[in-house]
Amino acid sequence: MGLLDKARQRSPWLIHYDCGSCNGCDIELLSCLTPLYDVERFGIVNVGDPKQADILVVTGSVNQQNKSVLKNIYDQMPEPKVVVAVGVCACTGGIFRDCYNVVGGIDKVLPVDVYVPGCPARPEQIIDGIKLAIDKLAQKDVVKEEG
């Protein structure tokens, strides 16, 4: 494992987007930052800026209104990047699946790398999922896009 890969594994910055969650998963996600779980010890930082993020964590199901927003945030993130779907809503649409405006899980819009089911997902699960995502992140290479 090269130094770069190691650095990438040790410094995953994540951005959290709440697509249409009931806030249950959001609260669980935020509790990961609290002293009890403290994800910063893995170098994980919760950033607000997709341009500086490596991992997109999405909670809640996608609906027609925020589909484009989700895509937009994803597009602004520089390669390499991974997506984690937290909660059954984000995985499949969950209990909101049949709503008139719901598109479904976020994999309808984005390529999802890790699914973390649960309603809500427990912090331990979330951390575990993010750890999986970090491993995937290290395997990805910078996709060079000529701009």
């Binding site: 997709p50 341009k51 602004q76 520089p78 060079k144 896009e145 000529e146 701009g147």
Partner: peptide, 8 residues
């Protein structure tokens, strides 16, 4: 190589 993006 640089990708030109929109401002955040």
């Amino acid at each position: 190589s640089n990708q030109y993006a929109m401002p955040y």
